[in-house]
Design a protein around this nucleic acid. Sequence first.
RNA 1: GCGCCUGUAGCUCAACCGGACAGAGCAGCGGACUUCUAAUCCGCAGGUUGCAGGUUCGAGUCCUGCCGGGCGCGCCA
Length: 585
Amino acid sequence: MKAYLEQELSAVLAEMGAPPDFVPEFEIPNNPEHGDLATNAALQLARHLRRAPRQIAEEIATRLRQKPVDPRRIAAIEVAGPGFLNVRFAHTYLADRIADILRQGDAYGRTDVGQGLPAIVEYVSANPTGPLTVGHGRNAVLGDTIANLLDWTGYAVTREYYFNDAGRQMRVLAQSVRARYEQLLADPDMEPYLDLSGDRRARWERLLDTFDTKDIEVGEGETVEVPASFPEDGYLGEYIFDIARSLIERHGLDLLDADDLTPFKQAAQEAIFADIERTIRRLGIEMDTYFNEHTLYETGKVWDVLEALRERGHIYEADGAVWFRTSAFGKDKDTVLVKSTGEPTYRLPDIAYHVDKFERGFRKIVDVFGADHIATYPDVIKGVELLGYDAGAIEVVIYQFVTLVRGGQPVKMSTRKANYVTLDELMDEVGEDVTRFFFLMRSPNTHLEFDLDLAREASDKNPVFYLQYAHARICSILRKAEEVGVTFAEDADLTRLTHPSEEALAKTLLQLPEVIQRAAETKEPQILATYLRDVATAFSQFYRDCRIIGEAQALATARMHLARATRLTLANGLTVLGISAPGQM
RNA sequence: GCGCCUGUAGCUCAACCGGACAGAGCAGCGGACUUCUAAUCCGCAGGUUGCAGGUUCGAGUCCUGCCGGGCGCGCCA
């Protein structure tokens, strides 16, 4: 409808001498008295046409009315206020659209604006150094929902997890595991559990003699006692012990004198990745691809990118390092791409990674990052652009941090002390649906306060249940209506839906496709979450005013259609958000 | 000091490329269940959209300057 009106209006405006690049837009007015769709085109054109906006609006209205406008769709075109043009839907239009929703079923809300364009959404992308935290949760849920939104708007979406299992972080992780491994073994009580055959007894006794501990600083003057071999910035989490224990079960003390960290790294990575995958699966997330940074070295792409940048003169060497001339485009400093050790910084593979995304054919590239990456991604985009790719295809979604609030107080967390709430613990406490919804109900660029008390409350205070309750209630009504013999006739006469609550509900329902489009374009899922609340409210009001059971068959059937259309709208919207739509509560 | 985000009702937040009277939820007060789910609905109260200028027919939205909060500013990721 919107597109139809915009097209008709464009034609009229062209006749009236509007600039050819002017695109009129209709929007839904805040105030229902202003009709179902309104446009401010006359106001915007007043200056250009050098005429009073009100007068322009009158002429547009007159011309529009002369067009062969389908009376099944439009009931009235009015001029109002300083020069707005308000359009009212015909009653038959609403009836047609409800029938349309039911025809589309599970697909209602889908559009093809993306036209099958290949899109990639990169999210989570946590390196396997520990369990996912609440912060990763916002990333995961946001990324996954954006991927859903793009899918529903007609893009061919790939969901990708990018990670790096080489580098310093992983080395420190492996060292941490080895230190815990030694610590667990350096216990005289372990004797009965160990195979001490051969020279193993001597090795074990040597460990008992030499094992020592030290204190390390963890901030705010606090210290923690750790094995002497524990790295300064090692990982203190309890999960490191679990990994060490599993190594003892599998290898006993045979890894004691290994001078290679590989088995520790391997075990840690496998265990942690398995854990991460379990966690995101709980949230309903299924990745299409996992991309290991390492492949960018194996294929030489990292060096190709470096050479390409060098050829184009964006690179120079100084102090033994290779620099990217970022100061040439507005940054206050240049950026190191290859350290004097010969090892690239993460920025170089990041550029190569994005080049790779283009080479794989993606035409829309979405990255989901926390606010702490805000300063780094412009370099990557610039790098890609300098190599001749369409950097405009890259969209970076930056989300602000999450604070957990309990009892009105922020929950203190410190990664350093391994004192943080994991995503799994959060889901254990409040459930998966609530977790997803809370991460989605706020704009990504606002700081999120996650109120655990509110989230845990299974009551009317919790906004998730409001949506789910409305859905469950519809299911219940439809069940009961069928029990008492109200039939769901295919040929129901939907023009019988004339009650204001019925009309208001119907008008709300038919917004779903454009709401999904807008949320997809802006990458702001809270637009959809907010809309679904409106749907639930409109339904509750309909429920208050209009009964199904006990009404004459024709009216009851028409209302069943409306209830079904509402259920589809809620269910499809919740599906996009990745939240379940229960049949009863 | 510089860059990005942010400041809207007591609290948490909406407000669709600048549009008509700034809206919800929670908290507060008052109402509605012999009825298809009261996890619901209705009403009341609550605001100088941080402050000051500017652009515009029109500004919560755009520009400038202040003030407050967050995140960055490494040959870490």
